[in-house]
Simulated scan of single mutants.
Amino acid sequence: MRAVPGQETSPDSSMYEPPTPTSSDIYPPTYHYSPDLTSFTPTGYNYTPQTTTSTIPFEITPDYVVDSTTFGDVRQTSLDPLPDSGAMSPVVSSGKGGEVFSPADPEQLAEIIARWVADAHLRTCLYSTEHILDVMRKQSPDITNINYYKNMAHEELWYDCAQKLTSVIQQIIEFAKAVPGFRKFSQDDQIVLLKAGSFELAVLRMTRYYDVNQNCVVYGDTLLPMEAFLTTETVEMKLVNNVFEFAKTIAELKLTDTELGLYSALVLLQADRPGLRGTDEISKLNEAVGRSLCLELEKTHRYPVKGDITVYAFLLAKMPALRELSMLHQEALSKFKRNAPHLQFSDLHKEIFNVDS
């Protein structure tokens, strides 16, 4: 069975602090990245070039579902094989005697996409929602832990955060590979999308760990406020502050896991990333995921965020802020590496962010 959407919710009033988006704001502008497309071969994740098709590049088999056995272990580092999204076309198997059909009903197709993306999202989260909520219920910010991180050496703090970020990115790569149609794209396009979107998706995943009641984030097995991560570097301070503000804004929407997974896929599948070639196929899949997200939100978030702005439009309007966070992270990382060229991060971290010492 598919992930069950949460109760109908109305966003907390504190989220209205950002400027109210208008209809002209919901289409994000083009931002320029400079990914090195020749070097990305992260250890353990092999990409096979795929040929593109002129049809919508995904297929879905509805008998592959999420159930209560998906989260046998709280820390989901050992995953069952995910379905290969590289063999996907618009054909759907009924699961009865090999009979197949093409879903003519857009809502039916959106429902199936939601189930697949939710499955990919849930199976590639490092910690289950139940575990995160349990930490939030049982713990409060501890001054000893806060001081430990505040007094941590600058390089040590960067290294610790980079290790945790790399673990999340490993799961994001698995998530992308399981999104219907993603592996239909060329190898180069997969690389561009992952390198451009990995930090943005990591920030979205952080929203699962954000406790809006205590303004803290679950970090490992403890709760930490923003000040635990602040340094004396201006760019780093801005990055930490903006990431926490963004996480709070999205967390206050109380998206279901299905909706957060679909929003993550929508952010990943941006056809305006510089260097992409198969933009038509990426745009088609992006539109299909967008329709699915819109229908899911209509079930649980019927009330507008403010005025006539729907939650879906609000989420679209936040996408430029995600890109700004990604560029700010790149700026902070580049400056840090110039000052600490001897500190080496993991190969995957170096491949994704492409920062030379």
Results as ranks from 00 to 15, higher is better:
222 T>H: 07
302 R>T: 08
347 D>F: 06
98 G>Y: 02
286 N>C: 12
65 V>L: 15
139 Q>E: 13
67 D>K: 10
64 Y>Q: 10
86 G>S: 13
143 I>G: 07
11 P>T: 01
229 F>R: 00
161 C>L: 09
245 E>S: 14
87 A>P: 08
21 P>I: 00
88 M>G: 13
31 Y>E: 04
329 H>Q: 08
180 P>F: 07
170 Q>M: 11
271 A>H: 10
112 I>D: 09
249 T>G: 14
305 V>Q: 02
330 Q>V: 05
295 L>P: 01
29 P>R: 01
251 A>F: 02
286 N>W: 01
22 T>H: 05
215 N>F: 12
167 S>Q: 10
276 L>K: 09
107 E>S: 13
270 Q>W: 12
238 K>Y: 09
74 V>W: 06
182 F>Q: 04
117 V>N: 01
256 T>S: 15
297 L>I: 06
270 Q>Y: 09
247 A>T: 08
226 M>R: 07
252 E>D: 14
301 H>G: 02
7 Q>P: 15
73 D>N: 07
134 D>K: 15
282 I>E: 13
151 N>S: 07
278 G>S: 15
81 P>Y: 06
43 T>R: 12
245 E>Y: 07
304 P>F: 00
191 I>A: 04
44 G>M: 07
169 I>G: 01
338 R>A: 08
312 Y>Q: 13
8 E>D: 06
232 T>Y: 12
135 V>M: 04
338 R>E: 10
125 C>V: 00
97 G>Y: 03
263 Y>N: 04
169 I>M: 13
190 Q>C: 15
211 D>Q: 08
151 N>T: 06
125 C>E: 08
101 F>P: 05
96 K>W: 15
134 D>P: 02
268 L>W: 06
137 R>S: 13
313 A>W: 03
